[in-house]
Design a protein around this nucleic acid. Sequence first.
DNA 1: ATTTTTGCAAACCTTTTGCATGGAA
DNA 2: TTCCATGCAAAAGGTTTGCAAAAAT
Lengths: 146, 146
Amino acid sequence: MTSSNPIVDALDAAGYRLTGPRRAVADLIAGYDGHFTAAELEAAAREHRVGVSRATLFRALELLTELHVVERLDLPGGEHAYVPCVRAHHHHLVCSRCGRVAEVEDCGLAEIVAEIARRSGYRIESHRLELFGLCRHCQAKAAPGA
Amino acid sequence: MTSSNPIVDALDAAGYRLTGPRRAVADLIAGYDGHFTAAELEAAAREHRVGVSRATLFRALELLTELHVVERLDLPGGEHAYVPCVRAHHHHLVCSRCGRVAEVEDCGLAEIVAEIARRSGYRIESHRLELFGLCRHCQAKAAPGA
DNA sequence: ATTTTTGCAAACCTTTTGCATGGAA
DNA sequence: TTCCATGCAAAAGGTTTGCAAAAAT
């Protein structure tokens, strides 16, 4: 059976129990365009008056990260954030003003990675590209005349 | 005047006082090929019997990060680590077994970043590429017959 | 009925801060 | 002598854990 929330579906498909707290967390996450921290998620839960304890929240995030329906992101300042995302390999383009996250596919990066492997002699197992900047919307706000 | 430690020189050049603890931290860091965490650095200080309090250690790391003589790195597991490094823009190739870090220059990445900017409409301000894999040395150890 | 999940609260780990003392310039 | 840097110890986050109670299957 399929719910209207892909995160719930992923939990279901992986054989986890569909509990109230998990559904609540899934719904909250589905509402995000951009990244969110554990603390923000907790605040959102409180605001929406859904009962999710901090421990459960962290456990849910860990679980969803394993299932690759959210991904952990390291912000430039060092904070940990999460983004809802698709399973395929991709990278994140983060708006440093509003936090909106766009997913970008590989677009030529694989070749560069291969080249780096060749030059360095390392056997590269994974890579992560994080891009930070201003989304269109925030560019407009930041420089109204431009 | 120039010391035998470039980290000390950087502190000096920037007008900071060359104190005992700062020299000690600089020497410890200079001994690393790869990344190290604050906790590891603290342990190393204790081991070498140099007195550096935790607060001072963190303050030194912050300072050196600002001076770009070390850079903060986010390991796949989410821990924060530091690497001694050159000032120019570059990326890190981290051995996931021994922690050794190689610096890699841009090698074509700039074009890709420009392409991503074009497609997404974001004004990209910074980017970070982190690569993880096995260095030559660890490849040999991991697969002795290969 | 069984097994998983939750909540609570405490523990833990990492990093930061205030403030008086000590050391570099 | 003057200001910067240190150490201490406490505080502040952020995240994890043990365990008994509650909920899902």
